[in-house]
Design a protein around this nucleic acid. Sequence first.
DNA 1: ATAAATCTGGATATGCGATGTCCAGGATTC
DNA 2: GAATCCTGGACATCGCATATCCAGATTTAT
Lengths: 154, 154
Amino acid sequence: MRMAEGVEWALHCCLDLAWARGTPVPAARLAAHHGLPAAYLTKQLQALGRAGIVRSTPGPRGGYLLDRPPHAVTLMDVVTALEGADPAFRCTEIRAGGPHTTRCAIDTAMTRAELAWRRELAGRTLADLDADVRRADPDAPAATRARLSPAPPA
Amino acid sequence: MRMAEGVEWALHCCLDLAWARGTPVPAARLAAHHGLPAAYLTKQLQALGRAGIVRSTPGPRGGYLLDRPPHAVTLMDVVTALEGADPAFRCTEIRAGGPHTTRCAIDTAMTRAELAWRRELAGRTLADLDADVRRADPDAPAATRARLSPAPPA
DNA sequence: ATAAATCTGGATATGCGATGTCCAGGATTC
DNA sequence: GAATCCTGGACATCGCATATCCAGATTTAT
């Protein structure tokens, strides 16, 4: 079982946008910042847009912005935006002996575990990540913000 | 993110073998019991064998047996046997600005959520599933055992 | 001994989703 | 009007889960 790599990209970009504090950042600059293929990162950003996590403005000086305060974006929100809401384990009801009236015990157990995972993800927001980073490296947000600022250093 | 369907198959087969109580069940009969492709189910059973969950005996009257008491096989054991031990989220360290001394906050958060999932799976065994099933349908284990018995009903 | 049943492991085919690229069209700023 | 940027669709590629087949080994039963 493997999570799409785009989830990692999206999480980093969301944090970047939180640090950009309302200044639009073009997809190409986000991609360059992380060494990612711009054409594909675009797809992830569009998914974040459809989920209402991110907003975009076209034209010069345009780009992506976070569309909610960082404390209102949970990791679960981002994962769901990219991976969809379907559970990883899907019961295909292979129990023998015709139709059953009770719920499959295996399905119940696997679903319970997945809910624990979702609960953890839903309990952490971009604001929490920001706090974690600042605790370890207080200058990182400002440095990132500078590197993503409208006028590139070269 | 999607879990391999073979995990579901393996869990059902493990429960079947627990109910067979030491009587070897051929892979072909397990497959027929659940309407699964025998040639592929074989692969999952072999993985369970390499993990020490299941044991096999060749020849007529041979087949698969559970190689541990049901309370000593956790759902995590089965999932790991089939999916491997790698986490679903793998940090590829795309943080910008050269090498970092601190751990990536995103990686930490995603890993924490996955540990919650693993903890749930590690906390439930085949014996628990067996108890769940008996609570809802006390005759199901015996019925399955009969259907898997060495002399097929036809 | 021979035959039948069963597992093991490797080779191979197939399908699907994640990854990745490209482009035509539209919106916005200058 | 030109440059910048996003949107959405079409398309190519790659890896992995799914699936099949077979030759070889092992054990049971006669």
